[in-house]
Design a protein around this nucleic acid. Structure first.
Length: 236
DNA sequence: GCGACAG
DNA sequence: ATCTTGTCGC
């Protein structure tokens, strides 16, 4: 498998990355409700790393939103394009994720990212970033509350509470802590591009009929790990 | 200055 | 994210 090149103009330091976020954040569309849950395609995105060998494997798994059956899968392997810095996660994953998306032959529909969208120090997380670059509706489902605060939601599946940011951008509801399984730790949902928070949560719930983590993310997670293994070629 | 901090 | 065995529970 060919290794995806990091674009030559990719940000080389934190200052450049933040500047690009500030430029792109103005392009996020926030006044569209988003695709109706249960219709069209939903695409799970995730990546796995091998920092030792400087490799990142990305997976895009397209599901039928109504049945959650796999429509198509694609992977890509690239170089790690940025160190992990909280708030700049996108710069680590975007080139390789875009390559995986471009390898698809069907329309991705709604992008479901493993991380945040609007819930971000500058309101421009991974999901927002990917949405703006592709023009596709996007949302984030994260496993941890990051720096945000929230009240414990009720115990029932579907119960939720506000995810609140209180930072340089002001105090604001940036997402929701959503219970996808009874009595289990909630997931943290935020809108990315061209999707509202209500719709994003409805999708997150539909995509998680059995486990805490949405099927989109679970499928993409398994696939990118397999792709990384294959890229490493057994020789360890 | 120190600690916390999506993946 | 990743390093890692067994183990408790449905």
């Amino acid at each position: 498998m060919r290794i995806i090149e990091t674009p030559p103009d990719w940000p080389v330091d934190e200052a450049a990355a933040r500047a690009l976020q500030d430029e792109l954040r103005g392009r996020v569309v926030r006044d569209e409700p988003g695709p109706p849950p249960g219709t069209g395609h939903v695409t799970g995105l995730d990546v796995a790393y091998d920092d030792e060998r400087d490799l990142v494997a990305a997976a895009a798994v397209v599901l039928d939103a109504a049945t959650l059956e796999v429509v198509e899968e694609a992977t890509a392997v690239g170089r790690v394009s940025f160190p992990y810095v909280p708030g700049l996660l996108a710069f680590r994953e975007v080139p390789t994720v875009l390559a995986a998306l471009e390898a698809l032959s069907v329309e991705p529909g709604l992008l479901v990212c493993d991380g945040y969208g609007r819930a971000h120090p500058r309101r421009f997380g991974l999901a927002s970033h990917l949405g703006v670059l592709t023009g596709l509706p996007s949302m984030g489902v994260a496993k941890n509350p990051f720096t945000f605060t929230y009240e414990q939601p009720g115990p029932a599946r579907g119960d939720f509470s506000e995810l609140v940011a209180d930072d340089e951008e002001g105090r604001e509801v940036v997402g929701r802590a959503l219970r996808t399984r009874h009595g289990v730790k909630p997931v943290f949902v935020s809108a990315g591009h061209r999707v509202g928070l209500d719709t994003a949560c409805a999708h997150a719930l539909r995509l998680s009929p059995r486990y805490r983590i949405p099927e989109t993310t679970r499928r993409a997670d398994a696939l990118c790990r397999a792709a990384l293994k294959e890229a490493l070629g057994g020789r360890i």
